[in-house]
Simulated assay, not measured.
Amino acid sequence: MKTEDISLFHRIVETGSLVEAADILNLPKSTLSRRLQALEDELSVKLFHRQSRSMTLTASGSHFYDKTTSMMSSLEETLSELTNEKTDVGGHLRILVFPIPELLQITQGILHFMDLHPSITVEIIVSAEPQDMIRNNIDLAFILEDSFNENEMVARHIMSETVHFFASPEYLARAGTPQTPEEISDHNSILFRYPNGRIFNEVPFGQDMVLSVKGNLCVNNLSVCLEATLAGAGIAMMPLPFCQDYVKTGQLEMLFKDSAPYEGKCYLVYPSRRYISLASQRFIDHMLIELENCSQTGTCNQIAKIRGAIKPLI
């Protein structure tokens, strides 16, 4: 019995469809169906009730899924213990990245990991939309705090970013400049919707304040938020690195400069209900080191600017 066939079985379970699993795995449906049938023949049990549009587990299939999930996890852990950290690993990783200012830093880290492990193939999915990581076979994700379910995910804090209020000179000339954070509620704010559906209208400020904001525009993408702010649509709360070039040119003004900024956190997460592959384990270790080095040396932003502007890629 091949462990790869068991992994394919897991993907079918998690998508609930042979067609969807084949699309995500980039395999012909006929190949996936044949390998599933071979697995059932080897086990001498029926794993799925096959229907026209979906597949549901039989009692035997459910039992096999539960038992093999822990088995595959133990196998990957054993392989990790036996193999040298520099030993090449293979496999395919699907990585979701929330469109954050550090997108290029993360991309550089992924490319470096691929250089170290030439047998690895990677798919990078940049999205601010909600994604079911299990159903969409996403191995790892870089996403913001409060945008994922902690009960379903294992999360590693990997970076923090200072977040400030910004507005264009045109908006401030028209609506006036708020002098205190409490006055922000009297202004039109550009709202932000997190991937989990939550609208960011109760805004943390400093260390212990929460400000209520309201506005006539809600977005789920930082680039759109930035463009709307530059156009004078309202006041927006955005990461400083994303806006600092526009502050330098006078296109944006940072508000409440004397107040302590809010610190937003980004996490590297993976589903707690799925065993984590050896490739994923190595990737997590690699990115933690890579981003820590970036933070200490301050070189990553410089490299990102040399290789290309962040704005068009987000």
Rank of each mutant, 00 (worst) to 15 (best):
T3E: 14
T3S: 11
E4W: 04
S7H: 15
L8Y: 08
T15W: 04
T15D: 07
A21R: 06
A22R: 05
I24R: 12
L27H: 01
K29W: 03
R35D: 03
A38W: 02
L43W: 02
S44M: 07
K46L: 10
M55K: 01
M55P: 00
A59C: 02
G61H: 03
S62R: 14
S74V: 08
T78Q: 15
L82W: 09
E85V: 10
R94M: 06
I95V: 15
I100R: 07
P101T: 05
L104C: 10
M114N: 03
D115Q: 10
L116T: 10
H117I: 00
V126K: 00
V126W: 01
A128T: 07
Q131V: 13
I134L: 13
R135K: 15
M153P: 06
V163I: 07
H164M: 05
P178C: 11
Q179F: 14
I184C: 07
S189C: 13
L191C: 04
P195A: 04
I199D: 07
F200I: 00
E202A: 14
F205Q: 11
F205I: 09
Q207R: 13
V213Q: 02
V213C: 06
G215T: 04
N216S: 15
V224Y: 05
A228H: 13
A231F: 00
A233F: 10
P239Q: 07
P241N: 01
P241H: 00
Q244G: 00
G250K: 12
Q251Y: 10
M254R: 13
K257P: 05
E263M: 11
K265D: 11
S272F: 14
S272E: 15
S277A: 05
Q281D: 05
M287K: 07
M287I: 11
Q296H: 13
C300K: 06
R307N: 15
I310G: 07
